[in-house]
Amino acid sequence: MNVFRLTGDIAHLLAIILLLMKIWKTRSCAGVSGKSQMMFALVFTTRYLDLITNFISLYNTTMKMIFIASSYGTLYLMFLKFRATYDSNHDTFRMEFLVVPVAGLSFLVNHDFSPLEILWTFSIYLESVAILPQLFMISKTGEAETITSHYLFALGSYRALYILNWVYRFYFEGFFDLIAVVAGCVQTVLYCDFFYLYITKVWKGKKLTLPA
């Protein structure tokens, strides 16, 4: 564990808490993509199957359980409790355009052709693009609530911090996982446009709106 990985995990946790808080406090999931959230639940489910087979540490197990539980909690709030507020008209990104190619790629490019490893690879690839429906939704509506933009900033920062963690681990531990690194870089690049808008608008106290 190094400082980049720890702050990355904290940013990830913070993002999830921010999203749950937004939905709970406003009693609304308006502006949140249910498709991105469904894919995140799928990401955590397929990646953390190793909870059953491998024990790494109490920290690792606890975080995994929190991530899985919170992702299903978010789905419960979005699709059951506050279903009436779900903005499905703007959530039109086609999930199969991501899930199908990602599933194909995880069969073709992986570290080992075994069920658990293919599912892990699938989760890494899917996570890298799972935010696209959310970003697409913002581009359609042209704006995001400030709390939603904080959520996205924390969520994007998490993988960016993981990249620093991988650089650190490469130099100091000789650790290098090509699949995670490439997918993590793709994931971070997808946020760059959002990061720019967030820093130039939200940090100056304005609402996140897209240029016309």
């Binding site: 990985r5 995990d9 990830h12 990646r47 190793d50 087979t53 491998n54 790494i56 690792n60 975080m63 995994k64 991530f67 570290h111 080992d112 075994s114 658990l116 490893e117 892990w120 993981y162 963690n165 995670a180």
Partner: peptide
């Protein structure tokens, strides 16, 4: 060489 599962990150 046998594959060793070692995903210790989240």
């Amino acid at each position: 060489e046998e594959f060793e599962y070692d995903h210790d990150e989240l």
